[in-house]
Design a protein around this nucleic acid. Structure first.
Lengths: 242, 242
DNA sequence: AAGTGGTCTAGACCACGTG
DNA sequence: ACGTGGTCTAGACCACTTC
C-alpha cells in the first residue's frame, strides 16, 4: 500500500489511498475514517506525515475534521470541476468537438494604458497580440484576441499556438495558472465578426472578456472572445457558502 | 513579536506578523522574505512551526514558494473570489441598484415531463409558476420565470415575493441552498420580451437558465431569466485546480 | 559548496468530546 | 479516563538553485 522507497512522497501515497477508499465507497459520506494515530501505526509512518495527507484532503474537500471527534468523509456530491478554468482546446475536447484554429494576426505591439493597467505592466512595454478564429469540427466557433506580455512568455511563436496555449504555459512557465475573472455580455456581431464567424450580419454573439492570473499574482493574459450564439452555450456552477 | 505563552498559536502569530509586513510594504511584491530557517532562528521556534505559518500564507495567496530559491511575496492577495450564488435582490444591492419587480403571472400548474425531470419530481405534480419583470432603479432589467414544487415551498404567496425568494427559503426551509447550475446563451429578444423589457425588437439579450439545489440534493427551483444586454453583464471567477 | 524549500521522524503537551 | 485532532520540538536527508 505504502512504499517508503518510492520517489512519490509518503503523504501523497497515503492521500491517494484514502481518496480511493472514499470514491470506492469504502469510507462512506459523513462517516469517521481511521484516526491519525491509527494510520500512523498501520503504515509505520510518523503522525505528522499522516497529518500532511489529511490536511491536503481537507483542502481538496474530501474530508472534514472535528476536534475531539475525528475525521469525517465529506458529502461529495458536487463535482468540483464544473467550474474549472479551461483553455479553448480543453473545453472543446470535453464537449466532444475537434478544436482547431486559423491565425488572423500575430504581432508584437506596444501596450496602451488600458491594457497596461489590466496586465499590470508598464505602458509601451511590448506585448503579443494574437487573433485567431477558433474552429470546432472545422466550423467557426469564436474569434479570440489574446494579449500576453512578451516578458512573461518568451519564445511564443506560431508553432506553439497550434496547440493549447495553457499547455505551453504549463511547460514553459514555472508559475502555474491559478484563476481567471470573466465578464460575459450579449451583443450583436459587427460586420467583420459576422464574416469571420460565417453568420448573418446582426446575429447575436456571446462576448466574453477574461483575465487570467498566475499563482504569484502576475497577470498571464487578457483575452477577448466572441462566440457564435447558435453554437456556444456557457455552463457553470455557483456555490452559496453561508 | 512572538509570545510563546499566548493562547494564540505561535504559527498564527507569525502568520499575522508576516501579513502585516506585507501589507505595510516592508516585504514588497515579488521580493524574497526571510527563509524558514531565519524565522526559526530569529524567534527561537521550530522550523516546522514556521512552515505551518508559511503554508497558510500560501493558501491565502499572500506568498508563493520556489524550490531552491525561497519564499516570495505575491503581487496581490487573492481574495475569496469564488463567485457566490446570489438572488436577484442580493445581486442588485451589491451592484448599487434598487431592486423591485412587477408580477406578471402567479399560478399553480401541473408539471410537464421536461420540468418534472429537471425538478426531480413526478409528472403532473403541482408547481408554482411565477413570472416577473425584474426592475433595477425602476427600469426593466430582466424577465424571470421560476418553477418551484408546491411541496417544497408551502405558503408561497405574492406578499412573500415582494422580498427576496432566497430569503424566504432561508427562513422557511431548514435544508439550506447549496449550489446552482447555470447555462448562459446570447439570443435576440422575442416581440413579447422586447415589450416587457422596453427595448427595440430584435435587441440582443442574455438568456440564463438556472437550477438551484439544496444541501440534501433536492431541487429547489428552475429559473429562466432573460436579461437586457445593454444593462446586464455577468461577472464570475474560475479556478484551475491542478 | 552553501542555501532553499520539501519531506520525514519520534517524540511531547494541549483542549475538546464522549463515555 | 480515554481517544481525538491541534500545536510544537529538534533534529534529519533530499532535490533544487545559485555561486
Amino acid at each position: 500500500m505504502i512504499n517508503k522507497n518510492s520517489p512519490v512522497p509518503i503523504y501523497h501515497q497515503l492521500l491517494e489511498y484514502i481518496k480511493s477508499k472514499i470514491t470506492s465507497g469504502e469510507y462512506p459520506a459523513d462517516e469517521l475514517i481511521p484516526s491519525e494515530r491509527e494510520f500512523s501505526e498501520k503504515f509505520q509512518i510518523s503522525r505528522m506525515t499522516v497529518r500532511q495527507a489529511l490536511n491536503n484532503l481537507v483542502q481538496e474537500g474530501f474530508v472534514y475534521r472535528q476536534k475531539g471527534k475525528g475525521t469525517f468523509v465529506s458529502r461529495q456530491k458536487v463535482e468540483k470541476r464544473i467550474s474549472r478554468l479551461n483553455s479553448y482546446t480543453e473545453e472543446m475536447i470535453e464537449r466532444g468537438l475537434k478544436p482547431s484554429s486559423k491565425l488572423i494576426e500575430f504581432e508584437i505591439i506596444k501596450t496602451d494604458s488600458s491594457l497596461a493597467n489590466i496586465l499590470k505592466i508598464t505602458e509601451n512595454d511590448p506585448i503579443y497580440k494574437i487573433k485567431r478564429v477558433r474552429l470546432a469540427d472545422l466550423k467557426p466557433m469564436s474569434i479570440e484576441s489574446i494579449y500576453v506580455s512578451c516578458e512573461l512568455a518568451p519564445n511564443l511563436n506560431q508553432t506553439v499556438l497550434e496547440k493549447s496555449f495553457y499547455e505551453y504555459v504549463n511547460s514553459n512557465i514555472p508559475d502555474p495558472i491559478q484563476y481567471a475573472d470573466q465578464s460575459i455580455q450579449a451583443r450583436l456581431a459587427s460586420e467583420e465578426e459576422a464574416k469571420l464567424l460565417e453568420i448573418p450580419p446582426n446575429s447575436p454573439v456571446l462576448s466574453i472578456d477574461r483575465t487570467t492570473y498566475l499563482r504569484s499574482g502576475k497577470v498571464l493574459e487578457h483575452e477577448l472572445t466572441v462566440y457564435r450564439a447558435d453554437r456556444y452555450k456557457l455552463v457553470h456552477s455557483l456555490f452559496r457558502n453561508d
